[in-house]
Amino acid sequence: MKSEYVIALIKWSRRHVELTTLSLLSVTLVAIWTLAELIEEVAEGSTQSLDRDILLLLRTSGDLSDPIGPWWLEEMGRDLTALGGVAVLVLTTLIASVFFLLRHRWTSMLYLVATVGSGIVLSSIAKEFFDRPRPDLVPHGSMVQTASFPSGHSMMAAIVYLSIGVLIARVQPGLILKVYILMVAVLLTILVGISRVYMGVHWPTDVAAGWLAGGVWAMICLMVADRLAKRGHMEHEAHEDA
Results as ranks from 00 to 15, higher is better:
4 E>A: 09
4 E>M: 08
5 Y>F: 08
6 V>R: 13
8 A>H: 08
10 I>V: 15
13 S>H: 11
18 E>R: 12
20 T>C: 15
21 T>W: 14
22 L>H: 13
25 L>F: 09
26 S>L: 13
27 V>Y: 05
28 T>Q: 07
31 A>L: 03
32 I>L: 10
32 I>C: 07
33 W>G: 00
33 W>C: 00
36 A>F: 08
39 I>L: 03
39 I>D: 04
41 E>I: 01
50 L>I: 13
51 D>I: 10
52 R>Y: 07
53 D>H: 14
54 I>W: 09
58 L>I: 11
59 R>C: 06
59 R>G: 06
62 G>W: 13
64 L>G: 08
68 I>M: 07
68 I>G: 04
69 G>T: 05
70 P>K: 14
72 W>S: 12
73 L>F: 09
74 E>T: 15
75 E>H: 13
76 M>G: 05
78 R>C: 02
81 T>S: 12
84 G>I: 05
87 A>L: 10
89 L>V: 02
89 L>K: 03
89 L>A: 00
91 L>M: 06
92 T>W: 08
93 T>M: 11
96 A>D: 01
96 A>G: 01
97 S>D: 02
98 V>D: 01
102 L>G: 04
106 W>D: 01
106 W>S: 03
109 M>G: 02
110 L>G: 12
113 V>M: 12
115 T>V: 11
119 G>V: 10
121 V>Y: 10
127 K>I: 00
128 E>F: 07
130 F>N: 07
136 D>N: 12
137 L>D: 01
138 V>Q: 08
139 P>M: 06
142 S>M: 10
143 M>I: 10
152 G>V: 03
153 H>W: 01
154 S>F: 03
156 M>D: 05
159 I>F: 07
159 I>L: 09
161 Y>N: 07
162 L>I: 01
166 V>G: 03
171 V>E: 15
173 P>G: 11
180 Y>M: 13
181 I>Q: 12
181 I>F: 06
182 L>Q: 14
183 M>T: 15
185 A>H: 11
189 T>Y: 06
192 V>L: 04
194 I>S: 01
194 I>D: 00
198 Y>W: 05
199 M>Q: 12
200 G>S: 12
205 T>R: 10
206 D>R: 15
209 A>E: 14
211 W>E: 07
215 G>T: 07
215 G>S: 04
216 V>Y: 00
216 V>S: 02
216 V>G: 02
223 M>P: 07
226 D>S: 10
226 D>H: 15
227 R>Q: 01
231 R>H: 05
237 E>R: 15
237 E>F: 13
239 H>Q: 06
239 H>M: 08
239 H>F: 12
241 D>M: 13
242 A>H: 12
